[in-house]
Design a protein around this nucleic acid. Structure first.
Lengths: 345, 345
DNA sequence: AGTTAAAGTGCAAGCGATTGCAATTAATTG
DNA sequence: CAATTAATTGCAATCGCTTGCACTTTAACT
């Protein structure tokens, strides 16, 4: 019955001793710092690597992080209420994580809630950089902390007052116009915008709203076709008579669209015969809804990857004073069964 | 034009000097190591804390992690294909992250793919423990690494050959029986099980299958009512005549149920009048499907939290040689509109 | 007050890498 | 072959905190 070994791992010093060189040489051989131009050094480095492998040497992450002053990881900031990613956010996060992993960077989840606990994570410099997911309410607070610490960061389809941080945007403005054009070409002119209960503070909401108002030529005061409420009361807009009775609805996202489809079917309103529905934020099951949902979509994986790249560049190239860079990605229309010609009568 | 400050943060030594004590005393005062029973020491510790605050001292996470030999973070292992969490997994992860955050632990995302890159993350001892999400295909490889390193870990609704790691299970076996009983009470006797393309290697699949076979009293060879295929070919089972024509289908998850509902409606088969459908893994929109989907559900948030607790206990209590502990959580039935009495005729 | 036990403190040694600098060795050139 | 340049190496400092140990101070008790 042997006592549990303290499980000491082989250190760089042990490798050095065994190889008959100094620890610095081992470090450099293993990290490929030396150019290995000379005849002998190449083979020596080779030998060191071999010995290290034999001894099962693995660099100690904690020691390295401490010495380098970098954690080789970044924080992913997201609202803590629905704590994890929903819908497209899942895919954005997937691309983001995957791209960073490729570059040996890890992603640390940082839920941001009302309690200011997350502040501490910032102060500790727990990570080398930050990515701020869309629809995070506390953007301003978070960005304030980021700027204060002068940390690398990237906003994912989000904005902050200072307009200071680099970001990756999704062209919601043009996207909305494409959606409207699709409906217009089908003959619709009375089009409603169903924003649900999403906060007007969110970048996406603002942009889609702007695109809508501009394309529809509304006086900015007129918002009788812009609905900010939950599913319960949406029907009083759809059921109303008169010349401005809507024949099509644009939903902010599947969160609004799916319940809407349900409610419409409850009221016996046929989609798309009586009413066209188009949504933003394509999800996995959009095509299997009843009817299949016409949506605006974007390459969420790419959004994540580009965000990661923007972040990595800041971290590694040591940009002095962040130069704000903005990448904007397009949306495209996926026509399915929920939109059709405007009903006659 | 001042040069960019190297941004040196105040260290524990600076606080010590200012307070006229040694660094160890500061460390202990700040970490609450001393019991502060004596009259003077309490106020002294108080004073040190005050000075530290004044100077804006923040412990350096990297140094602390290095000194302590712990990273205060855990890895969340999940398949890298659909890279991030889907459906209930999202909620499990949410609970998991939230619970750990409460205990000042961070969650590092570790996508596990075919390339063995993740191995390195293990060897580096990047984190203090691991949580293995359900439906991770590489469970055996991963667990092998975990056991080799003797790391704290928890399996979330998953199994491995050794049967060695603690885990949190969802009672899929009983869940399946509840689902079947619900259908039986409605008069159904010909019930199909739609497993989609899920691998039989997954714990949930095995358990639900076992529950199904046992409750239905099938000879283990008879699997004419167990379908493992995609949506395209599922109809040939549902459309067939004869006495064993199914009148109800149990879907492995919404991934099967949503497309099935769609296909059925395409074929003009009414749910629940002609066919009852019940699914596992309740998701946000189950109630808004057409018809609203009857599902088996469980408290995913709780699964995540319990997993976190199991993991933390191992990490902090320094259990010598992991003692396998299994927590099993129940499922419950949510009756909605997709199940009804067996059709006459 | 004197003795004993408990609590608090400072010293200094880690933790395990990376890296600037000076010295050394190897390659290159006239 | 000597002189010059380039590449490699080892020494030792550094990163900032925690912690075991020996010692001093304070509290508790007879």
């Amino acid at each position: 019955m042997t006592a549990k070994q303290p499980n000491r791992r082989t250190t760089i010093y042990q490798v050095a001793e065994r190889a008959g060189v100094s620890s610095s040489t081992v470090s450099r051989a293993l990290n490929g710092v030396s150019k290995e131009k000379s005849q002998g050094s190449a083979s020596r480095a080779q030998r060191i690597r071999q010995i290290a492998e034999q001894m099962g040497y693995q660099p100690n992450w904690r020691a390295r992080v401490f010495a380098e002053g970098k954690t080789r990881s970044v924080g992913l900031l997201q609202p803590s209420e629905d704590t994890m990613f929903k819908g497209v956010n899942t895919q954005i996060a997937a691309g983001f994580v995957s791209e960073l992993y490729k570059h040996k960077y890890h992603v640390v989840l940082m839920p941001i809630g009302e309690d200011q606990e997350w502040q501490q994570t910032f102060d500790e410099q727990r990570v080398d950089g930050y990515a701020i997911m869309q629809q995070l309410d506390e953007v301003e607070d978070v960005c304030e902390a980021i700027v204060r610490h002068d940390s690398p960061a990237v906003l994912i389809n989000n904005t902050e007052n200072r307009n200071y941080l680099p970001r990756v945007l999704i062209d919601d403005y043009t996207g909305m116009q494409l959606a409207i054009r699709h409906l217009t070409l089908l003959g619709h002119s009375q089009i409603g915008l169903h924003l649900g209960t999403h906060s007007l503070g969110h970048y996406s909401v603002q942009e889609r709203l702007r695109g809508f108002q501009e394309a529809m030529g509304f006086k900015s005061g007129d918002d009788s076709m812009i609905w900010r409420e939950d599913d319960q009361s949406i029907m009083r807009h759809l059921g109303r008579g008169g010349s401005n009775r809507p024949t099509a609805v644009i939903c902010y996202s599947h969160q609004e669209a799916i319940p809407l489809l349900y409610t419409l079917s409850q009221f016996g309103i046929k989609v798309p015969q009586d009413m066209s529905v188009i949504s933003f934020n394509d999800i996995e099951f959009s095509e299997y809804l009843n009817p299949p949902l016409t949506t605006m979509a974007y390459d969420a994986d790419r959004v994540g990857r580009v965000s990661a790249q923007l972040l990595l560049r800041q971290i590694n190239e040591n940009v002095d004073g962040m130069e704000r860079e903005t990448v904007t990605l397009k949306q495209h229309l996926i026509v399915r069964g929920s939109t059709g010609p405007v009903p006659q009568s």
